[in-house]
Design a protein around this nucleic acid. Structure first.
Length: 290
DNA sequence: GTCCAGGTCATCG
DNA sequence: CGATGACATGGA
């Protein structure tokens, strides 16, 4: 099955691919010759999708029923944040001299994580270790507990369901170099999904950013950084700022926006100048690091 | 060996 | 409250 998505203004496929391709240990999708493959879950079914760009149109092919086209389109739209008008963002950063370098990445969109559970687990995996190692850990966790499907001779992987992560054993932890706290936090999160404390629906029902952050940080292991990261990547909340992020503070320092990377008030003051576009500014600041 | 990495929690004063 | 140490391990 195949269908098309017309891309919006200010969409740069190459910039998005560059982000997707930043680590070769990524296991949840693959990028080859400008096309992307991924195993996604829609309507409780696992569907292998293939995305490429031709003449400003995204061509989506998949191995599911035609009836799923709408939901798959929704998934892609969320993943690449295609429904956002970025022109006000570029206006905003154009007014800040220190942010002009970010205009080089015009057309880059926040690459989302449509699955809330995956997003939260990814934040836990990434806490306090370097990204390269984090990708390795994610791959180990996924191949041990995730779902997979063979498509064109290649195995595609889907992040584990909450229930599966409750099976993590001490032996797995040791053999795969997870710290005790990471495993504890992952299982806390899995439990919160299993018992209904946290769900995407519940999160969406809450009206304010603060309420949403509070719900997520109820889980031991999800702190401010993790909650805000998930709100940025899964709910596309424009005001989400990953405070405490080392990459973010590094980028702010590099651009001469803060002198002291730990100066939280200075960082908060800076973000007031990009109000409504805090998440996008953060994402572009990360982009400025490579 | 040292330092840091897309943090978080518990425990102080 | 804000500060501080523990946690845990790969990679530069």
């Amino acid at each position: 099955m195949q269908f098309e998505i017309t891309v919006p203004n200010d969409f740069n496929y190459q910039e998005c691919l560059l982000f997707l391709n930043r680590n070769s240990d990524e296991i949840l999708y693959s990028v080859n010759d400008g096309s992307i493959e991924r195993l996604i879950k829609v309507d409780d079914q696992f569907i292998a999708i293939h995305v490429k760009l031709m003449d400003d149109v995204l061509i989506i092919s998949h191995n599911g029923q035609e009836a799923l086209n709408d939901q798959i389109k929704k998934y892609i739209t969320h993943w690449f944040d295609l429904s956002r008008d970025l022109s006000p963002f570029y206006e905003t950063i154009s007014k800040e001299k220190s942010l002009l370098p970010l205009l080089n990445f015009r057309g880059l969109r926040i690459i989302g994580i449509p699955d809330l559970f995956e997003a939260l687990c990814w934040t836990i995996i990434g806490q306090q270790i370097n990204l390269a190692f984090a990708y390795k850990l994610k791959a180990r966790l996924t191949t041990a507990f995730g779902e997979s499907l063979k498509s064109d001779g290649k195995r595609l992987w889907h992040f584990p369901e909450p229930k599966k992560l409750l099976e993590i054993s001490e032996r797995f932890r040791e053999e795969n170099q997870f710290s005790r706290s990471k495993v504890k936090y992952l299982m806390n999160t899995a439990e919160a999904f299993e018992d209904g404390t946290i769900s995407l629906e519940k999160l969406k029902e809450l009206q304010t950013f603060q309420e949403r952050q509070d719900l997520l940080t109820q889980v031991k292991g999800i702190g401010e950084w993790s909650a805000n990261y998930a709100l940025m990547k899964t709910l596309h909340q424009p005001e989400a700022i990953p405070f405490g992020d080392t990459g973010l503070t590094q980028a702010l320092f590099n651009l001469g926006i803060v002198e002291d990377r730990k100066d939280r008030p200075a960082i908060e003051a800076f973000f007031k100048t990009v109000k409504g576009w805090e998440a996008y500014t953060s994402f572009y600041l990360w982009r400025s690091l490579y």
